[in-house]
Each structure stands twice: as structure tokens, then as C-alpha cells.
Design a binder for these strands. Sequence first.
DNA 1: TATGAATGAGTATTCATTCAT
DNA 2: CATGAATGAATACTCATTCAT
Lengths: 212, 212, 212, 212
Amino acid sequence: MREVDRARKRERILKAAIRVFARHGFFVSRVSQIAGAAGVADGTIYLYFHNKDDILISIFEDRIDALCAVIRKAVSELDDPAEKLRRVIELQLGIVRRHRDLAEVLSINLRQSTRFLKQFAAPKFNRYLDLIAEIVREGQQKGIFREDVSPRVFACSLFGALDGLTLTWVIGKGKPERLQRAADAAATILIEGIRKRPAETPRRRARKGGKP
Amino acid sequence: MREVDRARKRERILKAAIRVFARHGFFVSRVSQIAGAAGVADGTIYLYFHNKDDILISIFEDRIDALCAVIRKAVSELDDPAEKLRRVIELQLGIVRRHRDLAEVLSINLRQSTRFLKQFAAPKFNRYLDLIAEIVREGQQKGIFREDVSPRVFACSLFGALDGLTLTWVIGKGKPERLQRAADAAATILIEGIRKRPAETPRRRARKGGKP
Amino acid sequence: MREVDRARKRERILKAAIRVFARHGFFVSRVSQIAGAAGVADGTIYLYFHNKDDILISIFEDRIDALCAVIRKAVSELDDPAEKLRRVIELQLGIVRRHRDLAEVLSINLRQSTRFLKQFAAPKFNRYLDLIAEIVREGQQKGIFREDVSPRVFACSLFGALDGLTLTWVIGKGKPERLQRAADAAATILIEGIRKRPAETPRRRARKGGKP
Amino acid sequence: MREVDRARKRERILKAAIRVFARHGFFVSRVSQIAGAAGVADGTIYLYFHNKDDILISIFEDRIDALCAVIRKAVSELDDPAEKLRRVIELQLGIVRRHRDLAEVLSINLRQSTRFLKQFAAPKFNRYLDLIAEIVREGQQKGIFREDVSPRVFACSLFGALDGLTLTWVIGKGKPERLQRAADAAATILIEGIRKRPAETPRRRARKGGKP
DNA sequence: TATGAATGAGTATTCATTCAT
DNA sequence: CATGAATGAATACTCATTCAT
């Protein structure tokens, strides 16, 4: 089988798994359900993944990598750290909004077991947090963001806030527009939350970044 | 059997369950493990809980009720809405810090299944969100907080941020002091994030605020 | 506790057990159900019976003994063996009709396990069969019944026929009258089935029995 | 897997179940025992049957169907209704004699629960009764059998008598020959029991028949 | 490669029975 | 005597994984 065909079938299984996991949860989902949804035999799953756990891990790694790549690219096209943060928030909640199933998997299913989270999710997750923290650090250096806030703490809070909004949106069956507006508001709260006060640095320059 | 004895044994089982769930996760935990940790026979569990699910639900309901009560009391003793928010954050992360096992259960295990979350957690969870939202509303009326932020969105963000900090603390094996300092920082970010800027007219969106 | 009170409570439990077994079957019935129906605590059952099996055995032994006693008495008041058989049939199906629960227990529940049937029911059951066989033997000696039929085979057939009628009545939810009429018909079939032909002995004298 | 292989394995499990049920009784039998006796894994049972109940139901349905078919065929080759009845009795007790385990299951285990009997056994059972009743009806039309006996009551009695003989044979550990002779005797009793008396006007009730 | 029949380890839950009160 | 809380052995059934075809 050609490498590309193989990759395509793997992707088909992964997509099916996201759908199934989203609807039932990882532990309640059955491998045979995934196989059925992907249109392959049960045994075929094991030609592409080591075991059931491996499927969940793969979803997480694939998608977080993609998210990081998208963020990195988008961020590199902007100057103002505040703008960057806003963009990150928009991107993340945008993906969530367009791929609700994926959102459920990442926000809910990932937290299936402490062991899983600590062992597999933590490393990738940290890379995501670093991405955010880096932006904060940059903003602090440029004098736009307050320096009394640990970049990592901010990153955790940002991730958490977005995850909290996602969670309430997912369990509340809200419409996409609501999440959109919530994204704007959250962005404002968090960005204003670390922005230096106008008395300290002129707010009007914030957008362009950098000291005068 | 006296009512008080019954309650005491129930509590013992609940504490054991928190310990076991925190270590292994809900689905991976075995009822017999909980029974063993509580020092009772397997069958005894079922004299106090309908089934395994009921144990998790009970943990959630009991603890969230306690948290809400503590918050309500503390908040009623303060005037300034900003102070109130800071106190809520301190209280919540304080509890998390002192009961790490409970933190793991609430932050990780609770999200075992969408069904569970939607059916049982949502109502209690909303009551918690309402508590926060009420403080925000009060601050807006007093002219301290910006009015362009939905109280509920802020509440979700606050919860999410704290949950995000909890999660990273729990999976990162951080020391209690770190969480303490994170609490301060998160409080600053979020409170400053909705505080009205004294020198300016309220800006709807940060990015619009350029030069005059 | 006075002996009579003890006997009364034992009887109460037995009656409750008949009711419960009839409705659910022996294996599906729970000791706690019987206790509940009898208005005693679960543990109390074990002050009157060794275990659950013992309850079923006791029902069988008590009731079959009573049936045998009733039959013996009724039979002793009659002369004609054919009349005796008809009376036995009437009596048995009469009891069944008036105590449907007991009928279900004896006809259905008794056959719960081969072991149980062979070990406990067989001896008592044989005594019942002997009672019938004895009547047949008497009829053969008096020249009323054919001699080419084993009394025991007839007894088994009689019991079986009555049990078959009981069973179909019980599972068919028939009215008491139907069983009454079936009893008459069955009596006719079986009695005529062993009666000597008119050509051999004058039929018209059958009722009075005995040779002229 | 070929359809025929599947049927063969199903049959193997069914045969094993008959053996196990006969020895221990339905409720006391363990699924793992059946699996062991059939030489398959526990889980395999569930690829062929919904659950333990389904096994018992299947035994009943399969075998009763076979019995009905055999009877129907044999009966169609005879003319005299009395001969037909005798043939039915011979056939049924012949099968019982050759398949003692099956006899135990059908005669004893089937009556496990009222619910089971009413729900599953009743329909198939009625078809068997109809077969007998039809013969009786035919005999009545031909003037061979008395008309004062309901065909259905006779069918119940016939079934019951055979079942009674089977039961006592099974629990009494009798030899096959005994059952053979019992079959003859039972046939005589029941057939003579409904046969019209040549010399007399049909008597409605035996006891009424006194002197002319 | 793909299949899906077979496997058998693994577990929540029930319930007869006991015994301290 | 009576109670009913506690016990813990016992089991039907599921489902991830394998492997012969």
C-alpha cells in the first residue's frame, strides 16, 4: 500500500475516533464503534495504532501540533504582543467553534485519567503554554505588559479561561456566535489585565508597541 | 443505627474515594479499591451509594456546596467588589492547595463523560458561576467594573483560569507556594482586566484604542 | 415465646413465601422480599428456617402432607374406587383453584433444580403416588379396573394430567370455572380409561361397586 | 465464516447446555460450565446467544419444533385417530427415553419461572397442544371418540400425563424399559378414556350412569 | 493488507447469611 | 427473641486484542 493511502486511512480512523470520543467519552467508547464509524474492521485499527490509548494520544498530539503551528505562523505576522494574544484567543476559539467534536475531545476527554494527563499530555501542553508565555515576556520587555505577572501563570490562566469558556459552551449547547462574543470579551479582560496602566506608559502607543 | 454514625461512615467512604479517584482516575479506579481504602466491605459501599457513578456525583455535589457556602460567607463580609473577587480566588485556590486530592478529582475526574457533566455537574456548576457573576454585576453598578463585559463570560473565564492553574499545578507536581503566588497574579490579571480605567472613557475593544 | 406464637409466625412466613415464590419464582425471589411480605426482619427468617432452600422444602412438605391427609380422609368415606378417584381429582384441583399461589409454587417452583427434586421432593411425592396407586389396586381387586395397567403408571399419569391442567390454567390465566370443568373431563377420561369394558362387567353397577 | 460452521458450533453449545442444565438445573448452572462443556471460551457463548436465558429458550424452541415436525409427519401416515394418539405417545416418550438429558431440561428446567413460561414457552407449547387437539377433534367427527370431552382439555391431560411419567422416570432413575412399558399403559388409559363405548349411549358424566 | 471470529481476563453489583446490639 | 447493618463470595457479561484465513 502506498504511503499516502496508509496516511489517509489513518486519518480516517482518527477523525472517526474524534467523533466517537466526543459523543461518548473515551472510556465509554468502544474500539468497534470507532472501526464502524471509520468503515474498517476492528482488527484494522491495530494496523495503524498500538492500542486504544494510542488513538487518544495521537489525536492530542496531531491536533495540538497543528494548533501550535497555526498560532506560531499567525503570531509571527504581528508585532504588537497585545495583538498577538488577541489573535491566539481568536484562533483557538475559532478552531473550537468550527470543530466542536474536537473541542469536546480536547477539553473533556483528555482529562480521562491522571496518569494519561501527566504522562502524555503534559509535554505537548507545556509547549503550548510556552508559546503564550513567550508573547507575554516579549510584551513585558517592550514595556507594554506589567512585570509583576509571571508569564507562565498568565499562560495557564489564558488557557484555563479559554478552556472554561469552551467547556461551558460545549455543555451548555450554546450557539457558535455566543462563543465568538465570549472570545472577544475574554480577550479584553485578559489583555487589559496585564496591560500597563496609562499612568505608567502611554496607552495610545500600546498598539504599536515598544518604548517611545 | 444512629443518623450521625451513618453520616460518618458515608463521609469516610467519600474521603477514600477522593483519594483513590485522584490517584487512578474514575474509570480506572475499582470499587473494591475504594472499599479497601475506606476499611469497609465491597458491599457496604452500596448501602451508602447507588453505584460507582453516584460516588463521583456525591463528591462533586458535597464539595461544591461547601465551596459555595464558604464563598458566600466570606463575600458577605466585604464591601469592595474587587476585594470580593480577590477573596474568591484566594479561597478557591486555598482549598485546592490544602486538598490536592480533591483538586485532582474536581479538575480532572469530573470531566469523565459529557453525559455526566451535562446531567449532573451543570446545575451545581451554574450556581457557582452565578455567585461570581453577581459580584461582577455589583461592581458594574458601583461603577468600578467595565460594563462591556458579560458577567457570565467573566465568571466562566475566572473559573477557567483558576481551573487551568489548578490543572497545571496538579499535573506539574508544583509546590503549594507556587499556587499561592499564582493566585495573587491571577487575581491581579482578572481584576485589573475588568476594572474601569480612571483616566479614559471605557474602550470597547482594546485594538481600537490607538492614537486620538 | 409461647410455642403457639412461634408456630403462628412460622406459618406467616411460609404464607408470605408462597405468595412471593408464586409471583417471582424461587431463584428470583429474595429472602428480604419474603421478610418484607411477612412483616419481619430479614434475620428473623433464620430463626425459623435453616436457609432459603429450607423454606421451599417446608412449603412442599407441609402442603403435601395436608393434601395427603385430606385425600385419605375423603377416600375413606367412599366405597367405589372409581368414586374415590373422582374425589381425589376434585379435591386436588379444588385446592389448586382456591389457592392459586400454592398451585404455582407446587407446579412450577418445585421443579427448580434436579437436585432439589430428587433429594427432597421425591419421597413425599411417592407417598402421594402410593395413595392413588392403592385405590387403583383396590379397583383391580374388585374387578372394576382393568388389570393390564400398572397402578403406579396410572398414578403418575393421573398426577401428570392434573399437573398439566394446572400448569396450562396457571400460565393461561384461566378462570376458576374452567379448571372446574377441566377437572370433570379429566376425571372422566382417566376413570373410563381404566374401567373394565361393559362386556366384561355390567357398567350399570359400576357406581355401587363390587360384584353382584 | 461459513453459515454451516456457525450452525454447527451453535448446536455444539446447545448440546452442552442441555447436558449441564440437566445435571444442575438452569439457575445453578454457570455459563462458564456450558462454555467448558462445549469446548469454547466464555465469551464465545455470547456470539451465538443473547444471554443465558436465550440458551434455555433456544433449547425449548428448537426441540419442540423438531418434536412437532416428527409428530406431524408420523400422524399423517396413519388413518385411525386412536392409532395416531398411540403413535404420538410412543414418539414423545421414545424421544424422552433416548435423550434423557433433554427430558430433564424440558420437564424440569423449563419451569424455572412463571415469567419465562408465560412469555416464551406458552406460544410454542400451544402449537403442540393444538396438534393433539386436532387428532381428538378428528376422532370425534369420525364417531370414534366421545364428544363430551374438550379436545384441548384432553390435550392438556395427555401432555400432563406424559410429562408426569417423564418426571417420575427422570427423578426415579428408572430404566428405559420401564418408560417403554409405561408408554403402552398410558396410551391405553388415555385412548380408552375417550373412546366411545360401543354398547351404550354416550354418558355425559360417569357418576350419573346408573341403571337404565 | 484486511478481516472478524474467538478469546478470556477483568469487575460492578447482588444477596444469602451472620451477629452485635 | 428480634433486628438490620455489614459482610464478601460469587457470576454474567463485556470488549480490547489477537491471529488464522
